[in-house]
Design a protein around this nucleic acid. Structure first.
Lengths: 118, 118
DNA sequence: CTGTATCCCATACGATACTG
DNA sequence: CAGTATCGTATGGGATACAG
């Protein structure tokens, strides 16, 4: 029989036509991989993330952090009840399964930037 | 001196604030990784790609192929001068440097889809 | 067969001001 | 400090028809 490869990939209510598009649906967009990259080896506070990403707006950073949290990739921990608040973001165990992926994405970016800067 | 890590990453006229965002700027979007995924192991004609990606529109496929070609990731070869045209797409040597990346993106998607489908 | 042309829209993202 | 609220915009991508 002629199966035209109608396999579907689903995650949290979203269905993708390809395994690659599922991954990109979760970590795609302009900022998500940057956030994950900065959280690879350390826990960071909101303001520390902002300083690491000088060109992102507060609103966008907030939205992307929330999306990553909803997808279970990062964890948000609040340490103080009254202002000034202290909030820390870190990778979850699930988020850590992305470490090799984030690393190779970062490495490829470095290699390409190096090669084409000369 | 207080370097706030102002390193920039550039490729083909675009500047990114992070090595990870450079990579995503090149292979990001809804369809580029899907195209690259289908070209991993074989050369494909325009129509073969379309059949592999039933939900993409002709316009979008055409635009994404052109963008990938302009970034030097894929190669477009025309084999006939008069209609019916025969056009084949394949990875360039530069595009092949993405193979491990595409593979790990695809693998992660499969694992996640498997885990959350049960 | 391999695309373009036109039109349209949703959504992602930015700018700025403001709040608990 | 850690965000929301509001508003505006750019662009990625869909639908459809048509062209070389």
């Amino acid at each position: 029989m002629k199966t035209t490869e109608e396999k579907k990939y689903t995650f949290r209510g979203n269905t993708y036509p390809c395994c690659a598009s599922l991954t990109m649906g979760i970590i795609g967009g302009k900022w998500k991989t940057v956030i994950l990259y900065h959280l690879m080896n350390e826990t960071l506070r909101y303001n520390e993330l902002r300083k690491s990403m000088p060109t992102v707006t507060e609103r966008t950073l907030s939205l992307q952090l929330k999306a990553l949290e909803e997808d279970g990739l990062i964890e948000r921990k609040v340490f103080t009840a009254k202002p000034p608040l202290k909030v820390e973001y870190s990778l979850t165990e699930f988020g850590k399964t992305l470490l090799p992926l984030i690393q190779i994405i970062a490495d490829w970016g470095v290699v390409v930037a190096d090669k084409y800067s000369k």
